[in-house]
Structures are given as structure tokens and as C-alpha cells.
């Protein structure tokens, strides 16, 4: 079991390493989605709606640009921007992961 987990981890890390943020800077403009960016971004939909399209009073992510989402998440992470729960979430992601999330949702925006 422990050995298996080690291999799983390595396998996942390998597949993620093949798609570092820098190497897929253009992926946001194509149909190809970074698999790690996808998995990170699926976390957002339970509160912000499918594809970030909120049907309630939680602010939508869909339609926001990559740079808007990235700067908002970094501001929540640092605490510069007030929130009830978002700073607790944003602190769970590295800046590179925030970039991947921003790129994922930025695909839905006209302003990249």
C-alpha cells in the first residue's frame, strides 16, 4: 500500500511536471486544458457555480479575466482584500496553482 501510494504520487507529479504553468502559457487560448489546472478549478464550482457561473449571491468567476482572478486570489491570500471565507481558501494554494486556476477560468472571458 505505502509503495503504491509512492508510485501514484510520482506518477501524478510527473504528469503535472510535464505541463508547468510556463510551458502552457498559450493553453488558456486553446482547447487544451491543463489537467492539474482543471482539477484545481473544479474545487471552485461548489460555491461559485458550474464553470464559475453563480446562480446565487456568491460572486461569479465566469467572465472574469485571468489577471483579475489571479490578482483577486493573491489579495485574498495575503489578506489585503477582506473576505469571510475566501482568504481561508486562497491560503491553500501556491502562487503557481493560483495562476493555473486563473488561466482555467480566464478561458471563459473575452479579456484574457
Amino acid at each position: 500500500m505505502a509503495a503504491n501510494l509512492r508510485l501514484w504520487l510520482a506518477a501524478c507529479a510527473f504528469s503535472a511536471a510535464a505541463l508547468l504553468p510556463g510551458s502552457v502559457a498559450s493553453a488558456a487560448n486553446t482547447s487544451e486544458v491543463n489537467p492539474r489546472g482543471l482539477v484545481l478549478s473544479l474545487s471552485c464550482s461548489s460555491c461559485h457555480g458550474t464553470d464559475g457561473k453563480s446562480v446565487g449571491l456568491i460572486p461569479p468567476i465566469n467572465g472574469r479575466s485571468t489577471s483579475y482572478i489571479e490578482s483577486a486570489m493573491l489579495a485574498f491570500k495575503s489578506g489585503a482584500r477582506y473576505s469571510t471565507v475566501m482568504s481561508r481558501h486562497a491560503k491553500g494554494y501556491t502562487d503557481a496553482e493560483i495562476r493555473l486556476i486563473a488561466e482555467y477560468f480566464g478561458r471563459f472571458s473575452r479579456n484574457k
Binding site: 464550482s45 461548489s46 460555491c47 461559485h48 457555480g49 458550474t50 453563480s54 446562480v55 446565487g56 449571491l57 456568491i58 469571510t84 471565507v85
Partner: peptide, 19 residues
């Protein structure tokens, strides 16, 4: 605000799951 977000969360997760 948290009470409002509880409602906002419920509406979105319902839509995200069954809608």
C-alpha cells in the same frame, strides 16, 4: 454575511450537482 453566503453556497452547489 456568512448567513447570506450559506444560502448562496446552497443554491450554487444544488445547481452544480442536479442543475
Amino acid at each position: 454575511e456568512e448567513a447570506s453566503f450559506a444560502v448562496g453556497w446552497y443554491n450554487n452547489i444544488i445547481h452544480d450537482t442536479w442543475g
